[in-house]
């Protein structure tokens, strides 16, 4: 059991490290790195599931009997492209946020937004 599932456990740890970075870090770029880590780890999980011991790459040749499962490979190719698309869009948002707020730290951005609301309330009371 230890050997059979060991890979999966490491992959779970990798996923969770990625997720932790996304939630716990305030820097917007670091969050995106965390997301990439999370997604890549899921890809690793899919690809490990496709492996057959003694199998080989799923490119047909005459003298080979056992191939690894090609379906997860095709799925993950798609998923990688989706991931890079998300990353690119997220990064362009970060660029615009930096230009608009002058910061890419979550706390600073929240503070500025709250500031505006507080100002509005003061003005109303005045």
């Amino acid at each position: 059991m230890l050997i059979g599932l060991f890979n999966n456990w490491i992959v779970v740890m990798l996923m969770m490290i990625g997720l932790y970075i996304v939630i716990a870090h305030g820097n917007l770029i670091k969050k995106i790195v965390g997301l990439t880590l999370f997604q890549t780890s899921v890809f690793i999980f899919y690809i490990s599931m496709a492996k057959v011991v003694g199998g080989t790459a799923p490119i047909l040749a005459d003298d080979i009997i056992q191939y690894s499962n090609p379906l997860p490979h095709a799925l993950i190719l798609t998923a990688i492209v989706v991931a890079i698309a998300t990353t690119a869009l997220a990064l362009s948002l970060v660029i615009r946020i930096k230009a608009a707020y002058g910061s890419i730290e979550e706390e600073e951005i929240q503070r500025q937004d709250n500031q505006i609301q507080a100002d509005k309330k003061e003005r109303k009371q005045a």
Binding site: T40, F43, S48, A50, K51, A57, S68, I80, I84, T87
Partner: peptide, 19 residues
């Protein structure tokens, strides 16, 4: 190592390169 050569190619180009 997992026999997923196509995926490896893409991941190298995207994960290590473009992103």
């Amino acid at each position: 190592a997992m026999d997923a050569v196509d995926v490896a190619f893409t991941e190298a180009a995207v994960g290590a390169g473009i992103s």
